[in-house]
Amino acid sequence: MSSTPTSSVQKSFKHEVFLSFRGEDTRKNFVDHLYHALHSKGITTYKDDKNITKGGKIDDQLLRSIEESRLFIIVFSKNYANSSWCLDELVKIMECQKMKEHTAYPIFYDVEPTEVRHQTGAVKRAFVKHEKEDDAERWRDALKEAARSGWVGVEDHF
């Protein structure tokens, strides 16, 4: 009896792409255009459009949606690090990306990769309110890890 090695079995995903973004910075411009472009190509894309209560915790359904997505597009913007919700999403995305089936693609929208990686400039100003929080170090590590690659200057193309 022959069996297929588990490494060659493809995982089935509910979403091809999960979009992580700071709504107030990018929802009505870049992210909406990106979502519609992906959708028009038949790419199932998860975009959380809920109004999130400031200081609210990320819910289990959103964490499941991250796990059920194959690709992650992280749209870093000036205020991305201002949101603990975005930072919790990012930590989960970086955990999932360590698995072979998942890949994260950072995009730097009106912010430089070094600002995200080292939490300087606009990112530092956005992150400052989290400095004393228990999760601050996990969030910093996720920002550093995610900012190692990606696309810069995309706002010039939309």
Rank of each mutant, 00 (worst) to 15 (best):
I52S: 06
K100R: 10
Y109T: 06
K98G: 14
K98S: 14
K78P: 14
D32H: 13
C86A: 07
K124F: 02
A37E: 09
V128E: 09
A126P: 03
E133D: 15
D59P: 04
L63A: 03
V111C: 03
K57R: 13
W151M: 10
T114H: 15
S77Y: 06
L38A: 10
K98E: 15
D141N: 04
Y46K: 14
K78I: 09
G150Y: 11
E67W: 03
F30L: 15
Y105V: 15
Y35Q: 08
N51K: 07
D59G: 15
V116P: 14
V31C: 12
R64Q: 15
Y35V: 10
N79V: 04
I107M: 10
H33S: 06
W151A: 14
G56T: 00
A142H: 03
V31L: 06
E133H: 00
D49G: 10
L143P: 01
H39N: 09
S69E: 08
S83T: 08
I73G: 02
K100N: 15
I58Q: 08
L143F: 01
D88T: 05
E16H: 07
L38V: 05
A146K: 04
W151K: 15
E133L: 07
K41A: 09
L19A: 07
P106V: 09
A81Y: 06
Q119M: 03
W151H: 13
V31S: 08
V152W: 04
H33R: 12
S149G: 08
E133K: 00
E145F: 09
E101A: 03
D60N: 15
N51S: 03
V116H: 12
R148K: 12
L38F: 13
I74T: 11
H130R: 09
T120M: 07
A126V: 04
H33T: 00
D32Y: 13
